[in-house]
Nucleic acid binder design. Structure first.
Lengths: 169, 169
DNA sequence: GAGTTTATGTCAGCCTTGTTGACATTCCAA
DNA sequence: TTGGAATGTCAACAAGGCTGACATAAACTC
């Protein structure tokens, strides 16, 4: 299995990696890994009165400063009411700034304030530290495969959004 | 980067895969992929009055029939009150059976009923179908890397649980 | 045998974060 | 000028986390 050619089946390519057992392992790996993935930021957020939803908003505002509410909605996949509640607290607490659009004054463009950027840095440092350790342990080839499978797992629309973000919009 | 040896740095091994940009991509890939990962079962569950928590309980009871409540608690990482609410509804609805332990009568051993197994099959078929497509698209080597990185991302305790499940307890 | 610990269940209350529905405002575009 | 898009907000609700408190039964320990 390690060379991808073990026990040739159906035209010379192994399909052993597609057994239900392999798939179940992948499913459980996703479940347990996602717990680790969110654990560190969650601990930081728990101290303040914030949750994972705040982290997500902060992450993507930092990622694309000046993004509109609608754009953020499509990225996060929640209702505007749900997002609005989160944004409201972030704006009230002075972590996010909402500027009325110049071209289109209906739009609100979102930016992190200095304090917002500070929290973002704390959260993403914590998350990156774990990712870096995992990457280092697994090695470059594993990382390439990791991304390849994750990308293939996304809904087409999410895949498009992911690619846009990846390629610097 | 594709061969893992691009632009050698620090003793011949590339560390380009550890840049903040690479890490950020991995973080966003996890976010978007997890959405896809849960999307199909979520749609099935939404029709009934169940949620993701019920799916998780059903999955692991199916995975390890006869498991105790305490064991399930450690796997799921929630409080007994939270799990109990979910188990209560599953037992009341006749999807899960709770049997008093024979050796230790304090313990409750959990089993899926026929109806429970039927729902489990529907849910995991849906989830496996997406995983299978992703695996097939990415290829065996990518899948190996995928699992390697996910495993390295887990908390040590989760990693232990994952390995135990993987190796058939 | 008494006392302690363990496994479980349950009640009450709280929080975050998701949902739907309804409605108002602003303002671009045809 | 009118329709629709973008946004905000109010209200109500549900899932699924949480803590704290308490009860029970059984097992374990001294």
């Amino acid at each position: 299995m390690s060379d991808g050619r073990a026990a040739p089946v159906f035209g010379g390519e192994s399909l052993l990696f597609l057994t239900d057992e392999q798939l179940r392992q992948g499913i459980e790996a996703m479940f347990f890994a996602y717990r680790g993935f969110t654990a560190d930021p969650d601990r930081i957020l728990a101290d303040m009165h914030y949750g994972r939803a705040h982290h997500r908003a902060i992450h993507f505002i930092n990622r694309a400063p000046g993004t509109t509410v609608t754009n953020l909605l499509s990225i996060l996949g929640v209702t505007k009411q749900s997002l609005n509640r989160v944004l409201r607290t972030l704006i009230d607490d002075g972590l996010v700034e909402s500027r009325v659009g110049t071209r289109d004054k209906r739009e609100r463009h979102l930016y992190l304030t200095d304090r917002g950027r500070a929290l973002e840095a704390r959260l993403s440092d914590a998350q990156r530290t774990r990712m870096r350790a995992a990457y280092r342990e697994a090695g470059p080839e594993a990382v390439a495969g990791f991304k390849k499978v994750l990308e293939a797992m996304m809904d087409p629309e999410m895949r498009r959004l992911y690619a846009r973000l990846k390629d610097g919009k």
